[in-house]
Amino acid sequence: MSTYSIEEAREIIQGYKGPKIRIMEVCGTHTHEIFKHGIRSLLPENIELISGPGCPVCVTQVGFIDEAVMLATDYHVQVCTFGDLIRVPGTEKSLADIRREGADVKMVYSPLDAVALAVQHPEKEVVFLAVGFETTTPVACLAVKHAMAQGVKNFSVLTANKTMPNAYQALKTSADAFLFPGHVNTITGESVCRDLMEKDGVSGVIAGFTAEELLDALATIVVRIQEGKPFFENCYTRVAKPEGNPKAMAVIDEVMEPCDTQWRGLGIIPGSGLKLREKYAAYDARRKFNLPKIEGKPNPACRCGEVLQGKCKPSDCKVFGKGCTPQHPIGACMVSNEGACSAYFQYGRN
């Protein structure tokens, strides 16, 4: 239940007179909903919202797209992906580019649908592009488990899954308080965020996604920050329970193990990635097809990296809105609907 009504929350936020507060929303869906509900237009000048690295598409390294492109074009597999990844530029090509040239790129709603496609088409090799954080990873793990249980041999996943705890460590000085991603906490529970407060003095609240929930979370931050000590609150208890979803955490742990991984803009964060455990090696597309190591090259003009760390606004980037638009994206943040640049471009450009 929310603490503040929409009216109360507005009053608290707009009445804030203290020193400047920098709030980072780490979740791309938050960025998107904040724009959609026009919430920025309510904020006084001394409250700044920074869009962080919480869009799986935006933080996925260029080399991952190159790997997917190579699988589809050189290994002739059917690449199954969420719609979000289709237009992300690789070093040379996006999945949309190669689909146009005849490669087999298929949009799916769920990784489980990709397993079903593999069953229906035993003549094809089906590879699912597994991106996402704790929210999306469990279903990818389930897909792998199902494939193994059903003896499906022509299915594998290309992993770029990431986890948030170590990323928070890399970001903790970027803002005064965080809007924690409600659906990640739905899986992980509250402990990660509590630890951040207790051990690192990082403040934040778990936020939901409706206008009412977002305003409630922002008002809670404004009130608590004036108390002058680190705080944590869960403003999304209707969905994100304190213990999270232990079964989902267990399935991640059963199928995947931590690894170092590269985040676009943040570099390599040790232990922040996930890869398939040895037991499931047969479902790891990199091993199955013996993919060479690919180092992608992002476009040097693009400042997505700094945008993702909250170091600059999308509109500070030289190519924003000029060379780089949702129609012709240069960086991943302009591609994904959740990307900070795309959201800035589509909803108002400042």
């Binding site: 598409v57 719609g83 979000d84 289709i86 237009r87 949009m107 709603y109 996402g132 959740e338 589509q346």
Partner: peptide
Amino acid sequence: LPEPGGELLPRIC
């Protein structure tokens, strides 16, 4: 309202 873009792509994550 976001300006009309290209092809409609369902967004999941």
